[in-house]
Design a protein around this nucleic acid. Structure first.
Lengths: 126, 126
DNA sequence: CCGTATCCGCGTTGATACTG
DNA sequence: CAGTATCAACGCGGATACGG
């Protein structure tokens, strides 16, 4: 569980530390741009500018910021080719790939229930 | 794919409409609080105040706001018992349950790679 | 081409108070 | 207890400029 920060079990100190860390990581990952970046990368290796083109509507800043965060958490690997002009490529690590699978599930879900959701919205908005 | 808003295939009009809708839904769902609410609900039925206690750090406003959004998209069913004081219960619909399964995957992932991530962070921060 | 820094507006968020 | 509204403030996120 990631929802509760304090669990009343023995070894409480370690458990709460692990829980709050899990929560922190979850908060990092569970945002629109991060998930879209992971999904866009998939099994490919993409350059910064390619990612920017793939992900509709993301700004330069948000892309950099989220890529740094994902790199820090070890989800993406960043490799700089010392050429001119510079060429920077991003690819998912093994943990990143593992997470991508679950995100694929979210995407599938979205498409499967598109109709349900649209109907529910119309019903709600009246 | 949710990342690309425009696909160059035939029936482009419908496809882009579906894609932008998918993207819109994805943007709704893919935020910290919404995912935590879905995860907290699980297979249970919880009252507003119980949810508030379950989810560490969520504010009254964010909870209401996200619950409305989830209800609008048909992920959560809201039932009001006309008692006094009022009793409002929330439970996941079938689409909500389906999504929860994938979110469970994210939580599992978080715990499985906790060590990897912590190590990666230490390495990065130096 | 890629990255960082700065600035600033606007949206999100929390606090508070009030209604049913 | 649950929901809505209002308001102020903080921080996100976009634009821009400059550096490597």
């Amino acid at each position: 569980m990631v929802t509760k920060q304090f669990s009343g079990s023995p070894d409480e100190a370690d458990l709460t530390r692990a829980d709050s860390l899990a929560r922190e990581i979850f908060s990092d990952i569970a945002n629109k741009w991060a998930l879209l970046i992971i999904e866009a990368l998939g099994e490919r290796t993409l350059r910064f500018s390619e990612l920017r083109n793939e992900i509709e509507g993301i700004s330069h800043k948000m892309l950099t910021q989220n890529l740094r965060m994902l790199e820090r958490n070890g989800l993406v690997q960043r490799t700089v080719h010392p050429t001119v002009p510079p060429r920077v490529e991003y690819t998912l690590t093994e943990p990143g790939q593992a997470l991508r699978v679950t995100i694929d599930g979210m995407c599938d879900w979205t498409h499967r229930y598109l109709g349900h959701i649209e109907a529910s919205r119309h019903h709600f908005d009246s």
